[in-house]
Structure formats: C-alpha cells, structure tokens
Design a protein around this nucleic acid. Structure first.
Lengths: 193, 193
DNA sequence: AATAAAACTTGTCATAAGGCAAGAAAAGCT
DNA sequence: AGCTTTTCTTGCCTTATGACAAGTTTTATT
C-alpha cells in the first residue's frame, strides 16, 4: 500500500477492473494548496472537485448577520466538493478554504461526465459517495434538533477525533451550532466529568 | 396537460426522447395509500420509491428519548424516497407515513438500476433530483444554526405554504426543531404583527 | 526575543426556548 | 347529536445558550 498511488485507495472497488482504475486515476491532476488558500469562492460555479491526500479544509457560508458558519470539514481521504454547484452548474453560496497546506487530486466537470457516463462502476461509486454525504448531513441535521450542544460535541469527538484535535474551537463551534464561548464552557464541563 | 399521464410532467426533460419517456413511465406502478399507512418502516431496507400525484406524507425519526422528529414533508410532484436506504441497501432509521390518502407511482430498485445504467438522461435527472434534495437539506441545516425559530417558520410559510396549511402544528414544530408549545406562541406573535 | 495577533477562557447578565399542566377548540367516532 | 380523542393555546417557571467584555494563553511575525 505504501508506495502505491494515493488514488488507488479511493478507486479500489472490486467492480472496477485494472484498466478502468488506471484510466480514472490518470485523469486526476495533483494540486497543492497553501494554508488559507480558497479551493472554492462564494459566487463562483465550481468546475472541479478534489480528494485530499493530506491536510485539512473547511466549507462555510456567511449568514445575513455576517456570521461565518462552518458547514463541513475535510480531511485525508475525503472528497472536497460543493455537490450543488458542481452538478447543478450554479453559483455557490459556500466557500471552501484550506486550513493547513493541502495536497489534493483534482478532477474537472467535463472529465467527470465522461467517466460517469462511460464506466458503470464509476457512476455507482459516485452515487454512493453522494449518498454518503447526504447521510452525514442528515445525521447532523437530526442531531441539531434532538441533541444538546454537549452531546453533539461528544459525538464529534467520538466520530471525528482528528477534526477536534486539529481544528480551532471557533470553527468547530459554528459547525455544532453554538458560540465559541459556549463550546469553551462545554469543554470545561467535559474535562471536569 | 390535463388529460396526460401524471408522470409525463415528471419526465419531461428535453433530453429524453419519446421512446425513452414512454419506457420509463411504463415501468411505474400506481399504488394508493390510505391516511396513516406506512410507505416505509423503520428497520427495513427500502426497495422502492414513489412520486406523489396527490396527498401528503412525512418522514420522521424517533430519537433516544422517544421523541418523534419530522425530517421531511412530501406533497404533489415530490419524490418520496429514503436515499440512504434505497441506494446503500441498508436498513432505514426513518419511517415514512401518509398524512392523507395518497395516490403514488412506484418504482423498484432493480428496475431503477436498469434504467439508470441504460438511459443517460434518466441518470442525469436522477442525479439532479438527489442533488436538489441535498440542497434543501443543507439549507434547512444552515437555517437551524443561523436563524431563530420564528424566522424558520416564516421561511416555511413563504416557501411551502401548502405544507403549513395542511399539516398539523406538532409535525411542523418538530421539523423546525421547536416544541409545539413554542410554535404555537410564534404563530400568535406573527398574527399580532 | 519582542511584539502583535489570534485563540481561548471566564464572569455577569439577557433571552429564546423548553417543561409541565390546565383549558379551549377542533376533529373523529358511534 | 353526543362523546371521545386529538390538536392547539396559554400561564408560570426553569434551563440552555447567547451577548458582551475582560483577561489569559498560544501562535505568528518582524
């Protein structure tokens, strides 16, 4: 595994034969971002997506009052994509920013379409990835209603410890739907338990 | 429009030729549900989805404390589907229940797969439908963080007046993430504005 | 190393929303 | 029509979380 191409781990489905796998991987281009670079800017239509080989990123929206709300975090192995902008071809409301230096593998829309319509397993995998994103979002959404802030934070610690360890409190706070002040207190309470 | 098959409105994309459209529509089966019938039961793997020609339905999950939380409403023209269960082939956490008598058009997974892999425009449309659902869910999710309950309710009135007019307060309340008591008060405040 | 800028913590007080319970109103049933 | 059940409203009090502000710690920059 060690010396293999990073993307071989991503496209390792048993249904992809070796030729297909190589074809797919050959279409990706390595792109590196520096800390604070924008992968995606609010207002633009996104024409690419990426897989992260190393680093962290986050997406966020700015609400009417000007508050920045983190909508998602991205880490090693994750797909970084604004599904809506990429597939509906409309301008995005979100921005995606590198939180550390990031090594990414990029694919553009036209190439995606070509692969999607010509390789059955590629589209199955693409669909699965999208449905998985839908699933995470739904869980988060239900949790916002059903759980107290403290429980949401505890769940995050459990499910995404690498996020809690590497991302600043204020970004985690908006992601969880609380203020940084409240999250700081929650942290303290947990440490006292 | 009047005497045409309901599904012709759904599959009216310019990219579908007449043969394809007819083929697709011929695969759907009409199924009627009575008020309170379950389209989908928690714990089962969903093998179908539906388009609603008439009536209302809602999906919900039951949280740890036993509270029922509405996750979505379905009305005329909407697709009724548990994306996760249908595509990942796993058992669902949600239930979907008819809130009134419903006239629906049903498709099963295997037939869907056949159409998905053989008709390019069908899969484009399917992908678009899924991305649209993702988009709605994201908006709702951000709104839960950025907006007060009153604003969320006002937005619902504006965007889905038919839901507000036809669904009971308690279901709308859990959908908006507030108690029925609070929503009742919000309603009063709005009526006094 | 010195300084500046972020990130985080903590205190005090304000507010949105919840819990519970009692009634009123509406809908469903025999 | 009369009774029952569900839905909705309202009052009183509690609780989780927010707003603001001051201080501390950590990280970045020259």
């Amino acid at each position: 595994m060690k010396d293999e191409h990073f993307l071989k781990n991503i496209f390792s489905s048993a249904h992809l034969n070796e030729n297909e796998q190589e074809l797919i991987i050959s279409k990706f281009r390595q792109v590196n971002f520096s800390k604070n670079d924008y992968l995606l800017d609010e207002g633009k239509t996104e024409n690419h997506y990426w897989f992260i080989e190393s680093g962290f990123a986050r997406s966020y929206v700015v609400d009417i009052s000007g508050n920045d709300i983190t909508t998602n975090f991205y880490a090693v192995g994750d797909i970084v994509i604004d599904w809506t902008s990429f597939f509906l071809r409309n301008s995005t409301r979100e921005s995606i920013q590198a939180l550390t230096d990031c090594k990414c593998w990029q694919l553009d829309f036209d190439t995606f379409q070509q692969l999607f319509h010509s390789i059955q397993s590629f589209r199955e995998q693409g669909r699965t990835t999208l449905v998985n994103s839908y699933f995470s979002l739904k869980n988060q959404s239900v949790s916002m209603i059903a759980d107290k802030a403290k429980e949401r934070y505890k769940r995050l610690i459990k499910e995404k410890p690498h996020i809690v360890q590497n991302i600043s409190l204020k970004h985690i706070a908006t992601y969880l739907g609380v203020t940084d002040t409240s999250l700081s207190r929650i942290r303290k309470e947990i440490s006292e338990e």
